[in-house]
């Protein structure tokens, strides 16, 4: 014997189990299931079948190597890397668009630093190190301890070096003296570059 209500709801049972019905349809089907044991049993069969199917698919999915699939998908999702020039253009355009103030300030600061650094570097290149600005070593003063029995002999070479020998001076009694001054002038072989040092100093 045919049940007209069951025939009406029969096509809706499978969509009901799959969750494809509207809330109103779902409510009507649930009312029908309370009154129709056959339909309720069929719904239970559908759910059991779904469970079996899901388990079987899960087991199959476990056997599959999804690595390549993931790589394929990610390879399609990841955008292609832009050429370097394009990336730089993009970076600068974004910086000037969103950070114009700090960028301009930074460029001005860098330009100021370069403006200071370049002349400074140029002036330092080829220049003598600090303190070595003279072309020749010049002995300005030289003396020995008052009780010493030696005397200094200064020799400034043609090439610009300077030598101070300390030689015996048994007759020495007046201690030190300044270069170029006093009566000990002969002890200093001063500056004329071509002048040979005096042998009696030694």
């Amino acid at each position: 014997m045919k049940n007209p209500a069951r025939e009406k709801f029969l096509p809706m049972l499978s969509p009901y189990v799959d969750g494809e019905l509207t809330p109103e349809e779902r409510q009507l089907v649930e009312q029908h299931l309370q009154n129709s044991k056959e339909s309720a049993a069929q719904v239970a069969d559908f759910r059991a079948g779904d469970g079996l199917m899901r388990n079987a698919l899960d087991m199959q999915a476990d056997d599959v190597d999804w690595k390549k699939f993931t790589e394929d998908v990610m390879g399609r999702v990841t955008p292609e890397k832009l050429p370097l020039l394009e990336r730089l253009k993009l970076t600068f355009s974004e910086m000037f668009l969103y950070q114009r103030g700090p960028m301009v300030a930074g460029l001005v600061g860098a330009a100021a630093a370069v403006a200071i650094a370049i002349p400074l570097t140029m002036s330092l290149v080829g220049q003598a190190p600090e303190g070595y600005g003279a072309g020749r070593v010049e002995v300005q003063t030289v003396s020995v301890d008052t009780e010493a029995t030696v005397k200094p002999v200064v020799y400034e070479t043609e090439s610009g070096d300077a030598v101070i020998w300390v030689v015996d001076a048994p007759e020495k009694k007046d201690g030190g003296r300044k270069k170029g001054g006093g009566s000990d002038e002969e002890d200093v072989a001063p500056t004329p570059p071509t002048e040979e040092p005096k042998k009696q100093d030694l």
């Binding site: 003598a128 070595y132 003279a134 072309g135 002995v139 030289v142 010493a148 030696v150 030598v163 101070i164």
Partner: peptide, 14 residues
């Protein structure tokens, strides 16, 4: 016993 003052020069020695 020596006490001297001298001025430095580029690439020269004392």
């Amino acid at each position: 016993p020596t006490d001297a003052t001298y001025s430095l020069a580029k690439e020269k020695s004392f």
